[in-house]
Amino acid sequence: MLDIYIWFYTGCALVILGSIGTVIGPGVKDPIVRTLNTEVAAVGLSMIFLSYNHTIALLTFVASTVIMTMILLRAIVRLEEMGAKV
């Protein structure tokens, strides 16, 4: 049985690394890369939820992350189609 602290602190590290990566990571000039980098932080947050046993919250978070990524990708593609400076 793995220690709960391992899950919790791995989650914390992933959240911080993912948010730093989203702000100043490699290749974030491309908004799609930036959006995909938020997924690292999302996985970290899922681990934190998991270590607290927040099952329903975790389920809803996974579902809403998918919807959020779809909204962001739609906004990016539409804005690029319009020729906006992104």
């Binding site: 959240v15 993912g18 948010s19 989203t22 908004p31 938020t38 932080a41 947050l45 959020m68």
Partner: peptide
């Protein structure tokens, strides 16, 4: 667009 994507990260902080 950058601000929009980073809003996501701020939301994660709120959830933690």
């Amino acid at each position: 667009l950058t601000a929009l994507i980073l809003t996501d990260i701020v939301g994660f902080a709120m959830l933690i």
